[in-house]
Amino acid sequence: MHGMINRAVERFVRDTYGRDQWLKATEAVDLGFAEFEAMLVYDAALTDQILNELGDMLGKDRANLLEDVGTYLVSHPNTEAIRRLLRFGGVDFHDFLHSLDDLPERARLAVPDLHLPAMELREHRKAFFSLTVRSGGLRMLGFGHVVMGLLRAMADDYGALVLLEHKGTRDRSEILEIHLADASFAEGRDFDLSARAAV
């Protein structure tokens, strides 16, 4: 499992529940170190163990935990870089949804050994979409829930009103249903193409 993903879980726990909670979890699974390195690769089983431990510790099931991680990645000031990179995907939420097909490729341009699950967006009728997340290759259950949280936070970011539902897993793929109820429901957050202006 790429350190980027482990590191995201770690940052989520530390920024949301505090460093002590994170250290408690690393000790419980006998990690042997306190911090994941974003640029190293770890055994996939480690990620599963730590997610199980965190679920028990925080009283959350896997789905809720992962969705919170996804929301955190977009909405927390410490991960502003990720929000910005995602916002490059589209000028509005509709445009952004269509950029999800390219997301793994975009991630690989930045970090060549980071393999995110392939995603496929289908527009069934106007404003009704399904997103297939082929998370089977990641050997981590429920990556689609991370995507759910991410979409929810990105909709807020664009000021769009969306209804999301995780329809479960079939053939190692997760299906998300997305209804874009109102593309310009609220003001949304600013996005400046220039990183310097954003700081």
Partner: peptide, 19 residues
């Protein structure tokens, strides 16, 4: 895409530098 890449690469470089 170029602006995206510039930012993505800076973020990745920063992570490498810290490592």
């Amino acid at each position: 895409e170029m602006l995206y890449l510039v930012e993505a690469k800076s973020a990745a470089m920063e992570a490498s530098r810290k490592l």
